[in-house]
């Protein structure tokens, strides 16, 4: 069980590292749509729904540090916003029908919209002057919808990576009604 946790956490953190690297080097979204898509909110949603608090905390800390390393952002500025977005999902986990793609898309979109807003709020509070104008609204929209779509893609990919080295949990046993509805594992 411990090895499974470690492997799953490792896969999520590795995905964050590669995601941040691709965000910096793969510029096609920026060239086509004028905005770059942030993979971390999508990963936070996946972690909040499919993993545990330790992994979520590690993801928020390391993801934010890695991202700011390749950016002009202050070091770790996205840490609290990412953790906050993840915790909102963790607190309401039983209310989400996590197996439904639409719920995943909505959560991914909401997190991808919330995180940059909070980061910008922090940046401005700290006295930085980010480039903002009306076009930033379009960029925000692209980031949010792109993040939602990325969330949809991440679930099967990371579930596959997790399942590739472990047996599937045996289905059965008693489950509470809200667990059956939300898709919680026993």
């Amino acid at each position: 069980m411990s090895t499974l946790f470690n492997f799953h956490a490792l896969v999520i953190l590795l995905a964050a590292l590669v995601g941040v690297f691709l965000e910096s080097t793969f510029t096609l979204p920026r060239e086509l749509l004028g905005a770059q898509i942030n993979p971390l909110p999508a990963l936070v949603i996946y972690t909040a729904l499919q993993s545990n608090l330790t992994t979520l905390t590690l993801l928020a800390i390391l993801g934010a540090i890695w991202q700011s390393t390749l950016s002009a952002d202050p070091l770790g500025i996205a840490m609290a916003p990412l953790f906050f977005a993840g915790m909102l999902v963790v607190w309401n986990r039983s209310h989400f029908v996590r197996q439904q793609w639409f719920a995943r898309f909505v959560l991914g979109t909401a997190a991808s919209a919330l995180v940059p807003m909070l980061v910008l709020f922090l940046l401005i509070t700290l006295g930085h002057e980010p480039l903002l104008n009306w076009f930033s609204l379009w960029q925000w929209l692209v980031t949010a919808v792109g993040g939602g779509l990325l969330t949809l893609a991440l679930f099967p990919l990371l579930d596959w990576a997790k399942g590739a080295v472990t047996y599937r949990a045996v289905q059965g046993g008693y489950r509470f009604a809200h667990e059956r509805a939300s898709g919680d594992e026993p």
């Binding site: 941040v20 690297f21 965000e23 910096s24 080097t25 510029t27 920026r30 905005a35 770059q36 942030n38 991202q67 390749l70 950016s71 002009a72 952002d73 940059p116 980061v119 910008l120 940046l123 980010p130 480039l131 903002l132 930033s136 960029q139 980031t143």
Partner: peptide, 14 residues
């Protein structure tokens, strides 16, 4: 040039 700033609000390259 090996990378660009991931944030949409800065203009920087690595």
């Amino acid at each position: 040039v090996i990378g660009r700033d991931p944030a949409n609000w800065w203009r920087a390259i690595t």
